[in-house]
């Protein structure tokens, strides 16, 4: 499989998970919430300072349809992580010697692109 096809397939899978499959996620309390409730330390939990974010709890404010509301929030989150992570890793992965002889490797002609 070419590198391009691999990344395309992975991005489709990620969008499917965040935009479609997430609707079918279990809404039971997660492990920590469950333990907190069962053992009696759940009551000290406070609402997050970002609880009024337009995407809080993976729902999009103003979008009433539950399926669409979750899909928009999920895909927006994916986009933001891709943007932040992409910028971070691109910056860290850049070689200061870019353009010098050390960067030109005969077995990777597309490296500089």
């Amino acid at each position: 499989m070419s590198r391009r096809s691999f990344f395309a397939a992975a991005v489709l899978l990620i969008l499917f998970l965040a935009g479609v499959a997430s609707y079918y996620a279990s809404d039971r309390p997660d492990g920590l919430q469950h333990v907190a409730t069962e053992t009696g330390f759940g009551d000290t939990a406070e609402d997050s300072a970002t609880a009024d974010s337009p995407l809080a709890d993976y729902r999009t404010r103003g979008v009433d349809d539950a399926r669409l509301s979750g899909a928009v929030a999920g895909v927006a989150g994916v986009g933001l992580v891709a943007l932040l992570g992409g910028a971070l890793f691109w910056t860290l992965g850049r070689r200061p010697a870019a353009g010098t002889a050390a960067d030109v490797q005969p077995d990777q002609p597309d490296r500089a692109a």
């Binding site: 990344f7 969008l15 989150g77 992580v81 890793f89 070689r95």
Partner: peptide, 29 residues
């Protein structure tokens, strides 16, 4: 490097999406 950086970005994105999918485990998930 410029070969592995896109993979790291992809992995971060996958983890975000996968963390949206809670699977049931008895009374919890």
């Amino acid at each position: 490097d410029d070969r592995t950086a896109p993979m790291a970005g992809l992995v971060a994105t996958f983890v975000f999406a996968a963390q949206m999918i809670n699977f049931p485990v008895g009374p919890t998930s």
